[in-house]
Simulated assay, not measured.
Amino acid sequence: MVVDSHCHLDYPGLAEDLPGVLGRAQESGVRLMLSIGTRVRKFAQILAIAEAHDNVFCTIGTHPHNAAEEPDVTARELIDIARHPKVVGIGEAGLDYHYVLSPRDIQAKSFRVHIEAARETGLPLVIHSREAEADTAGILEEEMGKGAFKPLLHCFSSKIELARRGLALGAYVSFSGILTYKNAEDIRTAAGEVPMDRLLVETDAPYLAPVPFRGKSNEPAYVVKTLERLAEVKGVAAPEMARITTDNFFALFGKVPKPDWAA
């Protein structure tokens, strides 16, 4: 049994066929999904999906692309929303210097607001970092000095230095379908360095479908292909990797009730 630790069930490509998406996930052995928040002001859409399905949980946050749209989001607002039993994490938040759809200073301010909320609630912080390794690591290290929180580097596609600095802070690292791409040897090298007890798998659906589905709309059922590739990288059987990543998910996202199938 597998957990998709990061997907966007409210996004086009998934939302319009949600019963089919959830059914195919079940058939593939994906028993639980975490749908990630990207806009606090549109959180109701994600929460409605999570409330309607026992095996779907969610997070609350503002994606760095949307930071300029939501500059007034406060840590207190995130903390208050996170009291809901279906909200099990903060984010995704972080830095994206590839598109820079929000100014860098606004992204950084929003990132720190989310860190404050993660620290206060004790919930994991889902971190987005693209072409911003040094600043991401620097903010994480500075903020960790103010008080501990639980970082998760999601959809890892950065230089290995970010993984090393994150791991030194106690971070978990999640790998997406990028791990299966032919030209992603650097990502596989990074995965090889991540300790077994810090690994997660995800889809980031509807984006980044793994081989052999690359180019198609991604969905939680496909996380199995990423898990199989990660198992090869780490030199273990796929069922063992499924057990490891599932155990790691529940260790990190401790607010999620652990079902019988994951015991």
Rank of each mutant, 00 (worst) to 15 (best):
P151F: 09
I187T: 15
S157D: 12
R188I: 12
S176F: 03
G147N: 02
E185K: 12
T189R: 08
T180A: 02
I160H: 10
M144T: 10
E142K: 04
E143P: 02
R165Y: 00
T180W: 01
H154V: 05
F175G: 15
V173N: 09
L167Y: 04
S157R: 11
L167M: 08
R164G: 11
E141L: 04
V194W: 00
A184Q: 10
G166R: 02
E142W: 03
A168H: 08
L169K: 11
A184Y: 09
I178H: 00
F175N: 14
S158R: 15
A184V: 13
S158I: 14
C155L: 09
L162Y: 13
G170R: 13
M144A: 09
K146R: 10
P195H: 08
A190E: 01
S174R: 02
G192N: 13
T180E: 06
G166I: 04
A163G: 01
A184D: 10
T180R: 03
T189G: 04
D186C: 05
P151H: 07
M144R: 09
R188N: 11
C155P: 14
L169D: 10
G192I: 14
I160Q: 14
A148V: 13
T189A: 15
G147D: 01
A168R: 13
P195L: 10
G170T: 12
G192A: 08
H154K: 04
E193A: 13
G145D: 05
L152S: 03
G166D: 01
M144F: 12
A148H: 14
R188P: 11
A184S: 09
